[in-house]
Design a protein around this nucleic acid. Sequence first.
RNA 1: AGGGGCGUAGCUCAGUGGUAGAGCAGCGGCCUUUUAAGCCGAAGGUCGUGGGUUCGAUCCCCACCGCCCCUACCA
Length: 534
Amino acid sequence: MESEPLQFEPRDQLLQRQKKLEQIAALGFDPYPHKFEWKQTPAEIIERYGQRTADELKASHVQATFAGRIITIRLHGRAGFAHIQGQGQRLQIYVKLDIVGEKTYQLFQLLDMGDLIGVSGHLFRTKTNELTLWVEQLTLLTKSLLPLPEKWHGLADVELRYRRRYLDLIANEHARQVFLRRAQIIHHIRNFFDARGYLEVETPMMHPILGGATARPFVTHHNAFDVDFYMRIAPELYLKRLVVGGFDRVYEINRNFRNEGVDAIHTPEFTMLEFYEAYSDYRDLMKLTEELFAGIVKSVCGDTKIKYGAREIDFGHFEKLSMRKAIEKFWPAEEERLSDSGGAPLESELNRPDGPGLLAKRYNAYARMKGLDPIAELEKSSAGELTGALFEAVAEEHLIQPTFIYDFPTEISPLSKCRKDDPSVTERFELFIDGMELANGFSELNDPADQERRFRAQVESGGAEMPKEVDWDYIRALAHGMPPTAGEGIGIDRLVMLLTDSHSIREVILFPTLRPQKDADTDAAATAAGETTP
RNA sequence: AGGGGCGUAGCUCAGUGGUAGAGCAGCGGCCUUUUAAGCCGAAGGUCGUGGGUUCGAUCCCCACCGCCCCUACCA
């Protein structure tokens, strides 16, 4: 049985446009020409001639030739208007039967919204003073067989905006702006690190051993080797091998994959900037991070203060708090009253080996009373893990303005160097903005014996998010000697969220991971083609 | 994973226990400076899917599917 090649909905409009396509071909026009010699973009024309008056345009007789997509069309019998969109800018054209001739005017009447055309003519202003191209020549560049989203509301269905991003980008200028800004941000980051003598590198996305972070991985299989690989959860261990190899300053901007939950700030594949700087420590990185963020925000948003939702965030000043101090500072005042404890726990109490355990119990009593989630697995957790849990329970959400949290417990920082004066904490920090973790950096552990102990402890602890075996080659690399080094990771997607006032990570990823959709259109096509459906 | 919300024409959305409506888009007609063009006419629907209650379900109930939001998990 013969089957139609295209089966998409809306069927009637597809057929209608295919019919017009045939009529256009019958008139002798090529509906899919190979190229078009444009002279300007709509943006350039508006930039250059947007201020000229009707009289000035008449006197100078400016010729222009540009291409784009028809996004509105208004036919008036023997003349008509249309708006052409190219590179996000739209420009009106005026097509008149007397000027373009019978045949081209027939072509114009067969055009639809969404068609791509090239036009040539001179600029003028209409009665309503809109800059418009007086079309002398019109060429169809590509016939669009499916209609554009509705012209007033655009494409509002969030799922469709993500699944058919190409339509979102045509219909919603805001979506376009988000991704333009994302590109600017990444461009700025590259300039920043290139200017400081960093080398941009690419390290493997497929890892034989899990490492560099704690997260459940995606597993894939290589047929020829007949081995499983993990999609990387972090590039960290490879980048540090490069520092061992003599690339003293490296950075990588690339994807990480984590097989975890999905929400407004988590998605399975996300973009991470990681960079390493030999002979520096975590203090240097905090300074560098402040400079980097302030520079990006200023160049992209024009000011160090930005609006994020109802809040204003000031990148001109970064707060610094130790993790223990942050717990003290944001300890719920209500708990103090209810427990009659005489005040918030002091940093010094958290310092004691049994301190975090006692405070976690105290917090859990309060949490149960308030219907909040208590800290889980109290008995099984180490003091360091409980400190981290207390921080998350009590402080994290309050860190709205850019804040470095430092002095992370050693138990939750397996790749960081301990502080000389207090081995219970490491030279590690995270940057929080609007309650979100934006960056994580530390002085890198480069003692191979210590690293081996910590890797063995991870393997022994089991768990889906832990490595199954020690990465001996990484230990070997450290044994060859890694200079004192500081390294950091920055979540690019979350940074873009902040600087585009986006409140879901999917808004800043062109094609976010979604559940694959059973496609009604192509199913229909398969059926029409005689395929059997199980 | 738990809680909440949503799913009606291609798009944006109304609506009702008696099987449906608007605007836009599309189609036919008129129109040579319009711009949310306008006017006239015709068409377009398995009301997410599957059960149940009912004389009768798009509406009420249950399950499932999908998306969104919140919570949890994700140092």
